[in-house]
């Protein structure tokens, strides 16, 4: 009995350790990127000018922008954390919550609106039991929206993990979701 529990605990511990090290590696990579920007001797305005660029990079590495990462960036740039957060919270591209394994983004451009993206969203929400902007309980899907992706001829459009699906009907939703476990 104790053995099984112990094994699970060990697995959990290993998982945490690997996560830890992978986070540290990401921080190191982020630091190397910041280093490459050559910020020495720059004034606050000069350091601020690369903030959004660094946030993009950090989100690319972590998938989102955890508080600790925002604090780290603020320390690196010697800007107040409130300022960094103010910027992060202003731009919709920056995510302050981790995403599920798969991210479904709906295009909310006008063409997609006119061509019925609303019904597709309803269908996906119903099938995943998740509201737009949230992550499903099992961590499988995060539902988000994108401003016009410019693929208006394919309207209505949704993207799963960056792959575009065009002329989507509510009936197709089940099959699309089934592609992503």
């Amino acid at each position: 009995m104790g053995g099984a529990g112990g094994a699970i605990e060990t697995m959990e511990l290993t998982r945490m350790q690997t996560e830890e090290t992978s986070d540290q590696a990401k921080i190191r990579e982020l630091d190397a990127f910041i280093q490459s920007l050559g910020l020495d001797g720059r004034d606050a305005a000069g350091r601020r000018a690369v903030l959004i660029q660094i946030l993009h990079r950090a989100q690319g590495l972590f998938g989102w922008l955890p508080e600790e990462v925002q604090k780290h960036i603020s320390a690196k740039l010697d800007l107040h954390v409130s300022e960094v957060y103010g910027v992060v919270s202003f731009y919709h591209f920056f995510k302050t919550k981790p995403s599920g394994r798969h991210v479904i983004d709906f295009c909310t451009g006008t063409a997609c609106f006119v061509r019925g993206i609303g019904k597709v969203i309803e269908q996906v929400e119903a099938q995943t039991g998740t509201k737009l902007g949230e992550t499903s309980g099992d961590g499988r899907f995060t539902l988000g929206s994108l401003r016009c992706v410019g693929a208006c001829s394919l309207a209505p459009v949704l993207q799963v993990d960056g792959k575009t699906y065009g002329r989507v009907t509510p009936e197709q939703v089940e099959a699309i979701l089934a592609e992503y476990k």
């Binding site: 508080e67 925002q70 107040h80 954390v81 409130s82 300022e83 960094v84 957060y85 103010g86 919270s89 202003f90």
Partner: peptide, 19 residues
């Protein structure tokens, strides 16, 4: 002191500390 910043945007925009 740098505690306050505009946070969020639109109708929900407000002034507050980080996070």
């Amino acid at each position: 002191v740098g505690v306050l910043s505009g946070v969020g945007r639109g109708f929900d925009m407000v002034v507050g500390p980080a996070f």
